[in-house]
Design a protein around this nucleic acid. Structure first.
Length: 271
DNA sequence: AAAGCACCCTGTACGC
DNA sequence: TGCGTACAGGGTGCTT
């Protein structure tokens, strides 16, 4: 559920709380959370390292350490928070990182899909990701060239992290709506004008969602590192609105399945 | 290269 | 009331 805007918001919040702190111990209650290195070594090797930066690449939270880096993927239901080490621990909190100031970085993850990595270079994990949608160096020309060499359907492509990093189901649907493009359109069939619409739609939607500190839908419970919900849910046009009238044209929003993911779109605005 | 699907998980919704 | 079952979703990996 957390996509680029949510991960960005979490990372910014953690940065305030964690930069300069040092890990003093690591407690792993669900070892499968740890991908690399193996859980016991992960815990041992992290002790004593200092957090120099907290940022984001795609949907990964990336912590630069004095040696190597720690990456965390929240997947569906992961939440990160910083709490006093003595506070009660919820049953879904599977990984806890003791800090040198008496606080604890806690990784709570109801569905247990979330993953953590400790590596020398972040590219060992993020190297396969596509470009950052909001990066200045992703130009319209560059993006158009990427689209032109893909024959797949737009929705599937936007969800493909090796094509573009950071979009998930919500912002892929919202971007396609903002661009006025049907999710089943083939990427290499877009006119130059449509390529431009998609480029600006993705960047606009993501920028506004970052400004709004992410999307918190009623049925999921995204919150940032300080427990605050986002506000972008008030601006969602199509995601999860099957059957509701389109705010632009009034047509009923439709739902189809693309690449095994539910996809919401306006049949009139996105013809 | 594209697309379909199983898998990993669990809370929630729904049918009986 | 309570049970069983389907489903959602990010990403990987396997198969077609």
């Amino acid at each position: 559920m957390p996509e680029l805007p949510e991960v960005e918001t979490v990372a910014r919040g953690l940065s305030e709380l964690l930069v300069g702190r040092r890990f003093t111990a690591v407690h792993i209650r669900w070892p499968r959370t740890v991908v690399q290195p193996e859980a016991e070594r992960f815990a041992q090797e992290l002790v004593g390292r200092e957090i120099r930066s907290v940022g984001r690449r795609g949907k990964y939270v990336v912590m630069g350490l004095d040696r190597g880096c720690l990456l965390i993927h929240l997947k569906m239901s992961g939440r990160l928070s910083v709490e006093p080490a003595g506070d009660p621990v919820d049953g879904h909190t599977h990984t806890l990182f003791d800090l040198d100031d008496g606080f604890q970085l806690r990784f709570r993850d109801v569905r247990k899909f979330g993953r953590v990595y400790l590596v020398q270079e972040m590219d060992q994990v993020t190297g396969i990701l596509g470009p950052e949608p909001l990066a200045e160096d992703l130009t319209l020309e560059g993006f158009a060239a990427l689209l032109a060499r893909r024959s797949g359907r737009l929705k599937a492509l936007l969800l493909n992290q090796t094509f573009l990093a950071g979009l998930g189901n919500i912002y892929a649907d919202e971007s396609l709506f903002a661009a006025g493009l049907h999710p089943l359109r083939k990427a290499n069939s877009l006119t130059a004008e449509e390529q431009a619409r998609l480029y600006h739609a993705i960047r606009g939607v993501l920028s506004r969602a970052v400004d709004g500190r992410g999307t918190t839908l009623e049925d999921r419970g995204y919150v940032d590192a300080t427990g605050q919900p986002g506000s972008y849910q008030t601006r969602i046009a199509v995601y999860g609105r099957t059957g509701e009238p389109c705010a632009v044209c009034g047509a009923a929003i439709e739902r189809i399945v693309v690449g095994g993911r539910s996809t919401h779109y306006c049949p009139r605005c996105q013809a």
